[in-house]
Design a protein around this nucleic acid. Sequence first.
DNA 1: GTGTGCATGTAAGGAGTTACATGATTGC
DNA 2: GCAATCATGTAACTCCTTACATGCACAC
Lengths: 187, 187
Amino acid sequence: MGRALKLKPPSYLMLGMLRLGARSGYAIKKAADVSTRFFWPTSLAQVYPELARLERAGLVTRREDPHGARARSAYEITADGDAALLAWLRSTREEPLQFRDEGVLRLFFADALPGEDQLTLVRRLRERALSAEAQMRREIIPLAEVLEQAGTRYPAVVASLGADAYAHAEKWLARLEARLDEERPAR
Amino acid sequence: MGRALKLKPPSYLMLGMLRLGARSGYAIKKAADVSTRFFWPTSLAQVYPELARLERAGLVTRREDPHGARARSAYEITADGDAALLAWLRSTREEPLQFRDEGVLRLFFADALPGEDQLTLVRRLRERALSAEAQMRREIIPLAEVLEQAGTRYPAVVASLGADAYAHAEKWLARLEARLDEERPAR
DNA sequence: GTGTGCATGTAAGGAGTTACATGATTGC
DNA sequence: GCAATCATGTAACTCCTTACATGCACAC
């Protein structure tokens, strides 16, 4: 069973990735980098200590799984781990969303800039949204669709939501840009 | 002039709020709570040390401004501070956006849940988006519009962008919810 | 007179990042 | 042979939050 310990979102991320088939800490990090990183960034320095914690708590088991002479650990989620993951997925606890974006912070204070520079700032934000959307459609969604064909649909759902959200922001900023452009005195 | 020091987004937040008319640390925090907190949360314990840092660097000046027997400091942005703020607004450095949302993380792993519970989870996310949008329209946008009438437009721009983004997410999740509902076996 | 808001700060701790350290395997 | 990738971990540091501590002013 293991002792009770406080599980945080990164803990559930590990459990969830193991459930989706990742086996090593390295594999968890790699999977996170092409999926969950957009809404829950994770670094390797978090992964290994967290897996050890989960093992002590009995939510995962660890087995030696060397690859040639290279040491490797294979982790598996236990029945307790599975129960913990499901309980979290069902829990109604509302963690406030954390969003930190220097670009939007700049936009908030953009009144301090002359009109020309305001336009430049908005354009940069729009281009950033555009390339974020493109990256998701190019690199993330195809991978999620492979999972989808194997019967795991929500990674693709989340990736589409992300891409569409970026697309929406891009269109919104394009309209703002057009409005600012009209206001500029003709020269 | 003061010594050079590394300025981070919270530093510019202070400078920007002073520029918009906040005078005390407390007032900066209050203003942030109804505006920038949605894309750059700030706590009081950050505000006071940061103002002291900015003062040492010569980007703000501080003056005793007691209210009756209650001590109070009035801060003002200096010409150097103003220049630093403008340079930041114009800089092209792209800080990656940080987004952490436990709700979306849950959605990503929702395949582990039975269909009924998937629907519940999606519904909760939709309701959260809906109430976030409502809160922005009710509490944040009206305040921003007051500023707008005084000639400061971007706080209102950013608040509208936020509200519309939440509205977009809500509609997206409503469509997902409808799709999931159709799939459920009739009983 | 009492609760709410104004006002300023410090201390301790938590969460997460970057940098460091090491070495094997695989594909070109 | 060499570069990229696989693989695991630790140490130091940064940033930010929560909790603590204090006390006046004002409206009801």
